[in-house]
């Protein structure tokens, strides 16, 4: 990471917006997070020039790890062309002057909201998640003091109370996103609001995964090649979503599909949520 101090095209801003001391502090917290997979490390979150909930946690992490030679990709719900993705990408183009891309395989750092790219990530890539609520135990135990003790003592029985309740009400585990996982057989972690479709991609991944929650000022990590197991019951095993139809644009049957409403007559179509993946497949066919 050769962060050269002042070569931003906007004078007055440090490289990648944050000052060097802040980046150093976040990198120290990241090292701790990588050393204890799944453990939530508090950090001194800074104000970013955008509201909480738009990805301030992910942006602070990206700003801290970005070097001048990095290639950045930003996705929002899998797409490179939605508002959040476009504005964060433009932000880093301006304040860090780094190269950006929409191609998954060409990126060295990918900041994401809600999805993991369909194309398998490779060694050396870093995936940065924007996390709204980092604490998986919160819905059942509102006390922060208590949840920390529960993490420390591995008291994770209550996580299954939630899954039990799902089955009792709906007949199956109805949690479809932010599906809790156990990292390296130790910490229960909320994998940010990714669909459970993406949970298997967390397991033994080649890439480094970093999670940043800006409002709550916590970050956590999954180092490459870490075991990540989705919680389930013996007689109700973990399953991912499946669709009856392939993507109507590229015909993929193995990707996560979004339902798009096309008119007010009830017309709808299912298309890949990962725009880069869909685009590549269509180019291959053409």
């Amino acid at each position: 990471m050769n962060t050269s101090g002042q070569d931003s095209q906007y004078s007055g801003y440090n490289f990648a917006y944050l000052d060097e001391q802040t980046k150093r502090m976040i990198r120290r917290a990241l090292l701790k997070a990588v050393a204890i997979p799944g453990y939530q490390v508090p950090f001194g979150g800074r104000e970013m020039p955008m509201p909480y909930g738009w990805g301030t946690g992910g942006m602070q992490l990206t700003a801290s790890i970005l070097g001048a030679n990095d290639v950045l990709k930003v996705i929002d719900q899998g797409a490179d062309d939605t508002t959040n993705a476009v504005s964060i990408r433009t932000f880093f183009e301006r304040v860090a002057h780094v190269e950006t891309t929409t191609r998954t395989e060409a990126a060295s750092v990918i900041q994401t909201r809600h999805r993991i790219p369909e194309k398998a990530l490779s060694k050396g890539q870093i995936l940065v998640y924007q996390v709204p609520i980092p604490e998986p135990l919160r819905f059942i135990e509102p006390s922060e003091e208590e949840t920390r003790v529960m993490h420390a003592l591995e008291e994770y029985g209550v996580m299954h109370v939630k899954l039990y309740e799902d089955i009792a009400r709906h007949g199956h585990i109805a949690t479809t996103y932010a599906y809790p996982v156990k990292v390296d057989e130790r910490y229960v972690m909320d994998p940010s609001p990714i669909p459970k479709f993406d949970n298997p991609k967390l397991n033994m991944s080649d890439a480094l995964m970093l999670f940043g929650a800006g409002r709550e000022k916590r970050l956590y990590a999954i180092p490459p090649y870490t075991r990540v197991k989705s919680l389930d019951f013996e007689d109700h095993p973990f399953e991912i979503q499946a669709w009856d139809t392939p993507c109507e644009l590229c015909g993929a049957t193995d990707s996560f599909l979004d339902e798009v409403i096309t008119d007010d007559q009830g017309g709808r179509m299912f298309v890949c949520s990962d725009t880069d993946y869909c685009q590549n497949r269509r180019e291959e066919v053409a």
Partner: peptide
């Protein structure tokens, strides 16, 4: 639910069969 309340301590002991 009532069932989840009764089952909680069993789940804390590691029972994982719905």
């Amino acid at each position: 639910s009532a069932g989840a309340n009764v089952g909680e301590r069993l789940m804390a002991l590691g029972q994982r069969h719905y």
